[in-house]
Design a protein around this nucleic acid. Structure first.
Length: 425
RNA sequence: GCGAGAUUGGUGAAGUGGUUAACACGGCGGAUUGUGGUUCCGUUAUGCAUGGGUUCGAUCCCCAUAUCUCGCCCCA
């Protein structure tokens, strides 16, 4: 049998409804925060990700889906959303004509060539947002609060917000030097990855799980100690704004994020669910004041974050949260025989055009099978159409919950459902 | 990239080196001449991931491959 590619999954049935619900929730949430939808290509030139995600990151060095197109151009399936959005911001010169700041959100598939495991696929969905052009700490706080509020609306309880600040370029450079000085005497005793990180991106050593318990890890300098006045001021303001929004957070110096372009605020929201293990980070992001320029735009700041859909669904399941999407049908129409089918079909259309969610049998089921189907659909009402109904222009309507039956004349049918089904149509 | 365990109908699954691959649920049909969700009856895998091998014979043993699940790494 033909199978889907490794690490991919099909979305259908209940899962489809869940995702549809989450999508619509995000959509309405973003509208309230006044963010605009943006959609960029699923593949971009490979170079963009090398510049946008970072030459030394694992994502770029060993996890991308690369291919040459027929014109011999190196292309990459996007492993994350930020690079493409930044490219679009720069290429379309949004900094030139759009009103600042530019606030955008996206939702779509991303691709990473990894070994699949719980909450991780090769094609996965991410929601994310980016804000360009403002240095106001309020933006940092807003972005964090959006993530937190979204999880709150869904009803997730065990979430933990970790924040940290890397400071501006000057602070970061000073810190980097201090780190190198700190680890230099002992780096030979560290794992292979760490020795590599030491050369390319010393910050990442702090992330290491293998050497986590070593002495020098525990007393390593923190980024916060190396913040200059301005950076410190920015971070303090972010925290103050978060408090104003009632967002609980923990300042966690080990949150450094790997990308070279992060500056100032970085954050992660984790699910406080023991069995999640290393898959507990639900979303992450921060400020990246160097990225727009690195991709070829003006020196302009940005803030953003991304969240993974699959882990979110896992977290919802772990906390036994059922999403309140509508899983019922307003009306199910049952013709008694072949003779009434056309009439019933016409009736069905009229119901649908009046805004009701309605359906009919397409499988030539017998009456009893039809009633079973109505139950499967959670139909609120069933309309029975027989010879008598057509002759008298009066339908038999059955409330599928109370089993009460009503005779309703054809012209009053829509009114009847308007009165008896409360929905926004 | 490294490691562990899985793979039998629509679903949950049992099973054995050898005639018709249990059982349950679900589906469909019937008992019911215009009304189901109870009950009863019938029916529902020439098939046990794929390709090799061992064997008189393999779903069962061996090897390879694929996929799934779960760790590690990394990340969302």
């Amino acid at each position: 049998m033909l199978q889907k590619p490794k690490g991919t999954y099909d979305i259908y049935g209940e899962k489809g409804k869940q995702i549809e619900y989450i999508e619509s929730l995000l959509k309405s949430l973003m509208s309230k925060y006044n963010y605009d939808y943006i959609e960029t290509p699923i593949f971009e030139s490979s170079e963009l990700f090398h510049r946008g995600v970072g030459e030394t990151t694992d994502i770029v060095t060993k996890e991308t889906y690369d291919f040459k197109d027929r014109g011999d151009r190196m292309m990459t399936l996007r492993p994350e959303g930020t690079a493409g959005v930044v490219r679009s911001f720069v290429e379309n010169k949004m900094y030139g004509y759009a009103s600042m700041p530019v606030k955008t959100w996206y939702f779509g598939p991303m691709f990473r060539y990894e070994r699949p495991q719980s909450g991780r696929y090769r094609q996965f969905k991410q929601f994310g947002l980016e804000v360009f052009g403002s240095d106001d700490p309020m933006v940092d706080a807003e972005v964090i609060s959006i993530a937190v509020n979204f999880y709150k609306i869904l009803g997730l309880k065990g979430i933990k917000v970790n924040i940290n600040s890397l400071g501006d370029k000057e602070s970061r450079d000073n810190y980097r030097e201090a780190l190198i000085k700190h680890f230099e005497p002992v780096i030979d005793t560290y794992c292979e990855d760490c020795r590599e990180r030491f050369k390319k991106n010393p910050l990442r050593i702090l992330d290491c799980k293998i050497d986590h318990d070593k002495e020098e890890m525990k007393n390593a300098p923190t980024t916060i100690e190396y913040l200059n006045e301005e950076s410190k001021k920015h971070f303090e303001a972010v925290k103050e704004h978060l408090e104003a929004l009632d967002i609980d957070y923990i300042v966690n110096p080990s949150v450094v994020r790997g990308l070279d372009y992060y500056t100032h605020t970085v954050f992660e929201v984790e699910a406080d669910i023991p069995e999640f293990g290393s898959q507990n980070v639900l979303c992450g992001g921060g400020r990246y004041n160097g990225l727009v320029e690195a991709v070829g735009g003006p020196n302009m700041s940005g803030v953003g974050f991304a969240l993974g859909l699959e882990r979110l669904l896992n977290a919802l399941e772990a906390e036994k949260i059922t999403l309140p999407y509508d899983n019922s049908l307003d009306v199910y129409v049952i013709p008694m025989s072949e003779n009434e089918k056309s009439y019933a079909f016409g009736l069905l259309q009229a119901l649908r055009m009046s805004g009701f969610k309605a359906d009919i049998d397409y499988m030539n089921r017998k009456i009893s099978g039809n009633f079973k189907q109505a139950d499967r659909y959670n139909a609120k009402f069933v309309i029975i159409v027989g010879e008598e109904e057509i002759n008298t222009r009066t339908l038999t309507v059955k409330n599928n919950n109370t089993k009460e039956e009503y005779k309703v004349s054809e012209e009053l049918l829509i009114n009847f459902f308007d009165d008896n089904i409360e929905e926004e149509h």
